[in-house]
Amino acid sequence: MLAIAQSHLSAHADLVVLKLLDAENMPSVATHSADAYSISLRLKICDRRLALQEALRVLKPGGRLIVLEVSNIPWFFAHRLYLLYMSVCMPVLGWLATGGDALAYKYLLQGIRDFPSAEGLAQEMKQLGFTEVDFERLSLGIVAIHTARAPGLADEESFGC
């Protein structure tokens, strides 16, 4: 994914740096040094609180956080059907796709079951100190994109300057 992003951003290589790092601990990234921080489908497999605290640490004041993560379908019956599909069909498809190893699909289901709702993740982000926290559900709510800012955004931006 980084190679693809790098190729798309090659014209802006002097402005954009892409790195693969441990979300919970990034000592090579200076405090308040990043304009933006993006993480995709990883908060369910790491210590979510540590990862979000580290994102907050490295973001400049007013820096943008963008998180794509599993979510909940807001309609109870549809969400239950989705979980049933993930618990019955996905392991079988995973077993077929991997030639007999469905462990990755079992871990995926556990991550979905244990992950907070979109509202719950937004609340966690607010509690950690992020501002302007918002989210948008995609694919009926199977995933959501959360956005937030590190506190300290200059007042000029709110006035359109």
Rank of each mutant, 00 (worst) to 15 (best):
G141Q: 02
M26I: 11
C161N: 13
A154H: 10
D22Q: 09
P91M: 10
M90F: 06
L50S: 12
L52K: 00
K106Q: 09
L103Y: 08
G160D: 09
Q53H: 11
D155W: 05
A13I: 07
D114S: 14
A102V: 03
E136W: 03
N72W: 02
I73S: 03
L84V: 11
N25W: 10
P91W: 05
N72A: 06
Q127L: 15
R149S: 09
S7K: 14
E156D: 14
M125C: 12
P151A: 13
P61V: 08
A51Y: 00
T98E: 10
V58Y: 00
C161A: 14
Y85N: 09
L93E: 09
Q6W: 06
A144G: 04
G99T: 10
V143M: 03
C46G: 03
S117A: 11
A154L: 09
E119W: 07
S71Q: 02
H8L: 14
A104C: 09
F76C: 05
P116V: 03
S87M: 04
E124Y: 05
G111D: 09
F77S: 15
P151D: 11
D14E: 14
W75M: 08
P151L: 08
L21T: 15
S40C: 14
R80V: 06
K60Q: 14
F76V: 12
R149F: 06
I45W: 01
S71E: 01
A11E: 12
V92I: 15
T98H: 08
A36H: 06
L96G: 05
G141D: 03
Y37P: 00
